Structure formats: C-alpha cells, structure tokens
Amino acid sequence: MSIWKKQPILESLARNAENTAVARLGIEYTEVGDDYLRARMPVDERTVQPFGILHGGASVLLAETLGSVAANHCLIRDNLMAVGLDINANHIRPVPAGQHVYGTATAVHIGATTQVWQINITNDKDKLVCASRITMAIVPRR
C-alpha cells in the first residue's frame, strides 16, 4: 500500500529542483516506490572536500532533500508543509570522486505534527556510505 497522499512524479520533482542547490549539486530523482523515494548525486568537484572524497555536508544535503520532498508528499492537507526540525548523519565510508552515491528515503513515522525519515546513502557497489535520519515538523503553509 502506498504512503503517498500526493504521488511524487519524477518529472515534477526535477522541475521543482531547477535553480536550487539540488540542481546545482547534480542531484537527480531516480525512483519512486510505494514507500520510498530515491535519488542519485555525482561525487565530483561540486560535492567533494579538499581530500577528493565526498563531502559530509553534500551527503546531508542529499538526505535532507529526500526526506523533505518525501515528507511533503505525505501530507493530508494542502495548507500544510513539512520543514526540517532535526537531522543527523553517520558517515560510514569515503567515496572518491568519479562515482555516484544513491540516497533512499523511507518513513519511520508519519504523524500529524511530525514525521521521521531514514535516508541511507550507498555507493556504486551498494555499500552504505551514510546513514541519516531527519525529523520533520508539520506546520501551516505560509
């Protein structure tokens, strides 16, 4: 059974990301399942730190992007929005430039006032790179 109240559509997600940090870092939404949202991000000059490996902040940006977009597609009313309240990330292994990382957001809790999402980021070999969790606050849309 699908968790989405508003079905995410890859083309619409890409259009909404134009002229944002998401587009500038090369993040592409790749898959929507009944209970997950997936995207990939290149590890290149936009996303590496000075040692030539994936910057932890880029991983967090990917995680927050996926958690936020997913959360907003699970809202029961159009006059609400989900905003980040807290995020954490455990960086497990480095990823050198020239690869991609893949983030998958899955819901831990979808409530009326908060949502919690787990975002696992893996490398080209499907090994865990970063485990992140975001808590979203559900607030009135302004």
Rank of each mutant, 00 (worst) to 15 (best):
T135G: 14
H55M: 08
R77V: 12
N19H: 14
L61K: 02
R133S: 12
E11Q: 09
E45G: 12
L62D: 05
V22H: 04
S12L: 09
Q7G: 01
A82H: 09
Y102I: 02
T106S: 08
D34M: 00
I27G: 00
A105W: 03
R46N: 13
Q118V: 00
A107M: 04
R15L: 09
M1S: 05
L37D: 05
R38D: 08
I138W: 01
R77N: 08
T104G: 01
I9A: 12
H73E: 11
A89K: 03
H100Y: 04
L66K: 00
R142H: 14
D44N: 11
T104E: 12
I53Y: 07
A58C: 02
H91G: 11
D126Y: 00
T65Y: 04
Q7M: 03
I27Y: 00
A58D: 03
K6Y: 08
R40D: 08
Y36H: 12
R40H: 08
Y29V: 06
M41S: 12
I121M: 03
S59E: 10
S2V: 05
S12A: 13
Y102F: 11
R15N: 07
H91L: 14
P8Y: 02
S59K: 02
N72I: 08
K125Q: 14
H109S: 14
V43L: 08
A71R: 08
N90S: 15
T114Y: 03
D78E: 09
A82Q: 07
A21V: 15
Y29E: 07
E45F: 04
L62M: 06
A112K: 15
R133A: 12
F51E: 08
K5Q: 11
I9W: 01
V69A: 00
V32C: 03
H100S: 05
L37K: 14
L54R: 02
G26N: 11
G84I: 11
A14C: 07
G67V: 14
S2Y: 05
I92A: 10
A97E: 14
I76K: 09
R46P: 09
N16D: 15
L62C: 03
W117E: 04
V48H: 00
I110F: 06
K5V: 04
A58V: 01
R77M: 10
M41V: 15
G98S: 07
F51V: 12
E45R: 13
I121Y: 02
L66E: 00
I119H: 01
E31Y: 03
L75E: 05
G56Y: 00
M41G: 14
S12Q: 15
L10T: 01
G67L: 05
A82P: 12
A17G: 10
I9E: 15
E31M: 06
R24N: 10
R15V: 06
A23N: 02
T47M: 02
Q115R: 11
H100E: 04
